[in-house]
Amino acid sequence: MIAQNSVFDAVRRGYNELEIASNDEIIDYFSDVNPDAMSGHISNIKGIVFEQEVVNALNEQGMDAMLFEATNHPISDIALMSDADIAAEVQLKATDNVAYINETLAENPDIPIIVTSEVADRFDNSIVIDSGVDNVALDDVVSEVLAGEVANHVGESIASDVVSEGLADLVADVALPISPIGFGIGLLFGLPF
Rank of each mutant, 00 (worst) to 15 (best):
D32E: 15
D110G: 14
I101R: 07
G184H: 12
V136H: 10
D140Y: 14
G190Y: 02
V150Q: 02
N16T: 00
S82C: 12
M81R: 04
N34M: 10
G14I: 09
N125T: 07
N23A: 12
S31H: 09
V90N: 03
S43I: 05
Y29P: 00
L170F: 00
F189P: 00
S164F: 02
L187S: 04
N59P: 08
I127K: 15
E53W: 08
N5C: 01
N56W: 04
P112I: 05
V11S: 05
T104D: 11
P35D: 01
S39W: 06
F8A: 06
M63W: 02
F123D: 07
A159Q: 02
Q61F: 03
F68A: 08
V98F: 06
V98H: 04
M63I: 08
V145F: 04
E144V: 13
G166D: 14
D24C: 01
N152Q: 14
G182N: 09
A172Y: 05
E144L: 15
D83Q: 10
L58P: 01
A57Y: 00
D110W: 14
L67Y: 06
F123R: 10
A37Q: 12
L58S: 06
V33N: 05
E118I: 01
G184D: 14
E144A: 15
S43R: 14
A65R: 04
G40E: 01
P35W: 07
M63N: 05
E51W: 04
